[in-house]
């Protein structure tokens, strides 16, 4: 564990709490992509199957359980409790275009050809693109509630912080590098660059998040 990892994980935790707060206080899931949230559940479930096989630490275990449980709860809120506030007609990204290629990539690139390891690879590839339905929705509507942009910023910060974490680990753990996680992580962070630009130049200056027409 290093400071970048810890801040990254806390940022991830914060993003989920911000999203829950947004849904509960506005009593609405307007502006949130159900597809992205469903992809995150898939990511967490396929990656964290290792809670049954590898014990790392109480911290690690608790975070994994929290990410699975909280994201499932968000799906419940969107599909049941606040269902009328979710508009599927603007959440139209075709997730099969993400699931298929990620499954193929996982079959091609993995560390061991076992069910657990191939699913782990799949989850890494899928996480890198899971935000696309959400960003696509943002692009379509052209604007977002400020709290939704804070959610996205915290999520993006989590990914961005994993990069210095890997650099730190490379130098402190005798040249270790995880090529699958690093490649997917760089792609994932790159997807946020456009969003970050608008977030820093508009939202943090007190303006509304609006994309140029």
């Amino acid at each position: 564990m290093n400071i970048f990892r810890l801040l990254g994980d806390l940022s991830h935790l914060a993003s989920i709490l911000i999203l829950l707060h947004k849904i509960q206080t506005t009593r609405s899931c307007r502006g949130i992509s159900f597809k992205t949230q469903a992809l995150y559940v898939t990511v967490f479930v396929t990656r964290y199957l290792d809670i049954f096989t590898d014990w790392v630490s109480l911290y690690n275990f608790t975070m994994k359980i929290f990410f699975i449980a909280s994201t499932c709860y968000i799906l419940y809120l969107m599909k049941m409790k606040y269902r009328p506030t979710h508009d599927p007609s603007i959440d139209t990204f075709r997730v099969e275009y993400l699931l298929g290629p990620c499954a193929l990539l996982a079959l091609l690139f993995h560390y061991r050809f076992t069910v657990l390891e191939v699913l782990w690879s799949f989850s890494i590839f899928l996480e890198s693109v899971a935000i696309l339905p959400q960003l696509f929705m943002l692009q379509r509507t052209g604007e977002a509630e400020t709290i939704t942009t804070h959610y996205l910023a915290a999520l993006g910060a989590y990914r961005a912080l994993y990069i210095p974490n890997w650099i730190y680990r490379y130098f402190t753990e005798s040249g270790q590098i995880d090529p699958i996680a690093v490649t997917a992580g760089l792609v994932q962070t790159a997807l946020y660059l456009d969003f970050f630009y608008v977030y820093f130049t508009k939202v943090l200056q007190g303006q509304k998040f609006e994309l140029p027409a």
Binding site: H12, D50, D54, M63, R169, S174, Q176, D178, P179
Partner: peptide, 10 residues
């Protein structure tokens, strides 16, 4: 290249 234990990261 050595790979770090990836179960450690979230």
């Amino acid at each position: 290249i050595q790979q770090p234990d990836h179960h450690d990261e979230l």
